[in-house]
Design a binder for these strands. Sequence first.
DNA 1: CCGAAGGCAG
DNA 2: AATTTTGCCTTCGG
Length: 559
Amino acid sequence: MDLRDSAPLIVQNDLTVLLETDHEDFEAVRAELAWIAELIKSPKYLHTYRITPLSLWNAAASGIASARIVHFLEEKSKYGIPRKAAEQIIETHNRYGLLRLISANGCLLLESERPELLAQIKGRQDFRRFISGSSGLSDAAETPDFLVIRPDLRGLLKQELTRLGYPVIDQAGYHSGEELPVSLSGVTLRGYQEQAVDSFRSPAGTDSGSGVLVLPCGAGKTVIGIAVMARLSCATLILTTHITSVRQWMKEIRAKTDLDESRIGEYSGAHKQVSPITIATYQILTHRREKGGEQVHMNLFNSRDWGLIIYDEVHLLPAPVFRATADIQATRRLGLTATLVREDGREADVFSLIGPKLYDMPWKKLEESGWIARVTCSEVAVGMPRESMRLYYEADKRSRFRIAGENPAKIDVVMKILQRHKDEFILIIGQYLDQLRGIAKRLNLPLITGGMPQTDRERLYQDFRAGKVKVLAVSKVANFAVDLPDASVAVQVSGSYGSRQEEAQRLGRILRPKREANRAFFYTLVSKGTTEQEYALNRRVFLLEQGYEYRMEEGNDEL
DNA sequence: CCGAAGGCAG
DNA sequence: AATTTTGCCTTCGG
């Protein structure tokens, strides 16, 4: 084994990978590593990644060969790859594709080049329920060429086999659904958007037909969804997180296709229209009248012959919708998201029930080509005044986070930042209403919270867009409001615990391309010597994974 | 038919 | 481990 002291990686036996952050190749190696591993820890000088079965299968699905992975790791690591680790990478990677679902003569078949694997599955008590009738051979002891699978259990089977470590490539095809001619009008897709749409379409011969596209905020996920709809030209059900997003989809579909208004419907609390294009929230699907009661709106999946279902923000898809999705595997499914990471660890279910990752556009690449603003992130350490520190130490564990979050010294730091960015549009985002009210009062800023009526909000947005107001304080509504105007500076004064999701969303607020210098600034204020620092560490993980760096600043002198 | 207000759940 | 916001349902008044 030759020694490459100058290489930035160390690959360990357990498939964790360490990456030196001050290495000259850091950025290039990080970008490559992001395709095959997940970032799990990110202290300043040494980031820890883990290569998981799922990360390898997603890589396999996007066409990255195991040889390329091993070669890359070999070349970029100081001590090469331990033999065991290389074997395991190849073994796991190669399992993707061992099992295939196909349909023949109207039957659903599970086939493999490894008949002994099929025999093993057939022999398992807990897989008996998936197999229907005979498996092509009468003698149970013989090794089968294929297994006949109950079509209604197609989803569950894939879920179970993925859990067992044998993901299935599903080539059994899809029903085409009700026809609905759709053409795009007045839109030109950007290059990467075209690629994303293509990746969902049949790559030579095989029909991918289901899977997930990963794109940053502001990359135009809606347009891509609409373009897929136009290519397939069939009745489509679109599921999304909240009503504003439902309306957003409607608006864009109206603007960007030749569809008549009557063909587009909203299925929500207010309107229950089932049109050839129907847009609904996840909430209405999961809603129960009483605890443990029936989910009356789940029928939406069967209330029309959908040819395509679009899952917007697929990382937020709730458990009952997974269950319903297992039953409709013959329908094409498109997942859209900015991150495949879920806080509940159900990435494997996204993989087996929605589909594998088909396309991934890293944030940094979009930044390079100017489609989103270049952002400088800073973490500002703010010391706590003696009185708050005393309260902090006296408080029980659960109140501490809030006391640190509401650190009154943060106001002065906010003022300094406002000074630094005097003529720019600034959002001040926080978690606690008391804190925000305090800041808004001291600095004489308008404050938007969930309690503010929609019309009042819109008036403020307008003033902001017109430049009459340049600094706006906002509560958690900033995480959801689609129509919140764009700013070039965001100051996060507090957040909800370790949510990576939230950090990414808030950064998303300032990503829209800027007129002159295409730059934006993201500040996050963290109280020194408190638990807030640990949570901040976790919040950063997702953005670090995307290649953002955080500058460390001191907000005030020691108190 | 529509929108607003109040309650509850996630 | 917890604050806030949102969405859905029901009821009520026009």
